[in-house]
Simulated scan of single mutants.
Amino acid sequence: MDAPASPTTTLAANDPHDFKRRGVLFVLSSPSGAGKSTIARKLLGADDEIGMSVSYTTRPIRPGEVDGKDYHFVDLETFRDMVAKGEFLEWAHVFDHRYGTPKAQVWNELEQGRDILFDIDWQGAQQLHQLAGGDVVRVFILPPSMPILRERLERRATDSMVVINARMARAANEVSHWDGYDYVLVNDDVEHCFACVQTILAAERLKRSRQTGIIGFIRKLLR
């Protein structure tokens, strides 16, 4: 039996006119360990119409990371200067480091109809929505339970217990902001959760407000 078409493929097939559209600022947020990074990687690998926002950060570069690809790594003085000049769409202070989204790059991609994926926390999502409004789609991913979230963090074996405890304390605060999102998903099955994320993105791309090319089509239709 043939595998069922993905939600993205199905909806794309229902849009044969391929109208010019405005891009989507697609936000994925979750507590650390709830799975948003895994889903983000799957989305980037499955969909060539969306690219990752490359943030600026003051944290040190980690082994295997590439400056300009994973993050733009800058010192604190440079970051503060960029904040003062209004060069960020949003920025946040997380675990002793700062992260910010460059404004000029995002606006350029958006106008060209490119979708941009954001892996940011609730503060960044709130700032982004305040500045970009209807261009932003916010998805919050919940763990099945807090004990399972702790188990996932411990299983990763990348943090000390002190850091894990801090992440769990932060997770409770992050979950309390779930109602600031457009969609809320529970990641108890990563493939199902990923399929839901694909469906959300596909539907948001087809919104009338983003179909900027449909106006010309309508005018021709009514001649």
Score class of each variant (00 low, 15 high):
1 M>W: 14
3 A>R: 08
7 P>W: 08
9 T>R: 10
13 A>Q: 12
18 D>Y: 06
19 F>Y: 08
22 R>H: 05
27 V>H: 08
28 L>A: 13
36 K>D: 04
39 I>V: 12
40 A>S: 03
41 R>C: 06
42 K>Y: 10
50 I>F: 09
52 M>L: 06
56 Y>I: 07
61 I>E: 05
62 R>L: 03
62 R>I: 03
63 P>Q: 14
64 G>F: 11
65 E>F: 05
66 V>F: 09
67 D>S: 01
68 G>Q: 05
74 V>A: 00
77 E>R: 06
78 T>L: 04
83 V>F: 01
83 V>K: 02
84 A>Q: 08
97 H>Y: 08
98 R>E: 13
98 R>S: 12
99 Y>V: 00
100 G>H: 04
103 K>A: 11
103 K>D: 09
105 Q>K: 10
110 L>R: 11
111 E>D: 09
117 L>M: 05
118 F>Y: 14
123 Q>N: 13
126 Q>G: 03
126 Q>N: 11
130 Q>V: 12
134 G>F: 14
135 D>S: 15
136 V>L: 06
136 V>T: 06
139 V>H: 10
144 P>T: 03
144 P>V: 01
150 R>W: 10
151 E>Q: 09
158 T>K: 15
160 S>A: 03
163 V>S: 14
167 R>V: 02
167 R>Y: 01
169 A>W: 01
170 R>V: 04
172 A>Q: 12
177 H>E: 00
178 W>N: 05
180 G>A: 10
183 Y>M: 04
184 V>E: 03
188 D>I: 05
189 D>G: 08
191 E>Q: 11
192 H>N: 12
196 C>M: 13
199 T>Y: 09
209 S>Y: 15
215 I>M: 00
222 L>V: 10
223 R>N: 03
